[in-house]
Design a protein around this nucleic acid. Structure first.
Lengths: 126, 126
DNA sequence: TTCTCCTGGTTCCGTTTGGTAACTGACCCC
DNA sequence: GGGGTCAGTTACCAAACGGAACCAGGAGAA
């Protein structure tokens, strides 16, 4: 079928990049940081479902990948700010598109899900 | 900070949609099906790292969400084709953007990762 | 007839991941 | 001096994930 030959090796590389970029928590964090620099607890409040454990792990990974910058203020109580790097900013547009898509098509997905669950046992296939 | 108020409730809804859309295997499957209709084993070959178990589960989820259409041909040996629905097509563009981003910035991420790993114990923060 | 092959898919079992929640550490307030 | 706050870690446990073997079922070979 003559796929565009996007460098199969590069594709594999992309796949492992997507292992984390395509992570739901990473997407949520990047989207949250897209609006503004946030502190740890602010992120936790913003991304309701996330646990401290995963927030920490996700932020560490994103920081390691150069997508998020972590700034520690040596004050009391401790203050740690997180913001997108320029590399992270380049991803923000896509993440926002993804978020926008989810918001826009959320109802369609719910309907499809309901329709699927209502099927007896198999669909007429066509 | 006056976030645009994108309906906090809708945002939460989007988040749970992203639970699966933001799944690495889902992204890989959608991207693979973006080029052409594929059979089960073709998908398995295309998405190298995936196991039958996860491929089956991912396809079921995507089918349930109305993103992928599953067509069973009652022939021998069994033939099952998977293709994107129109809803899936609307997501394809974003997924391709994500893939393109990963390909484009993969090296930058590798460098950032190497730099992070080379840090002694803490960064100067400034 | 019997045996194997081919494909899509499921089940069993071990590993990894993620959630819960309690704890740390330094300082402020009472 | 004890409790509270913020950022983060750790222990524990359940669920999800991955691998490999097994299942179904008809075609073709022996």
């Amino acid at each position: 079928m003559q796929l565009p030959e996007v460098d199969t090796a590069r594709m594999c590389h992309a796949r492992q990049i997507l292992d984390r970029v395509g992570d739901k928590w990473s997407i949520a964090v990047i989207h949250a940081l897209g609006a503004d620099t946030l502190r740890f607890t602010e992120l936790k409040r913003t991304i309701h479902g996330i646990s401290q454990r995963m927030l920490t792990a996700t932020l560490r990974t994103l920081e390691r990948d150069g997508l998020v910058r972590r700034t520690v203020h040596p004050v009391v109580p401790p203050r740690v700010d997180y913001e997108l790097t320029e590399l992270g900013m380049t991803l923000l547009g896509i993440v926002c598109s993804l978020m926008g898509w989810a918001v826009e098509h959320g109802d369609a997905i719910d309907e499809a899900r309901a329709a699927y669950d209502a099927r007896p046992a198999g669909s007429p296939t066509g």
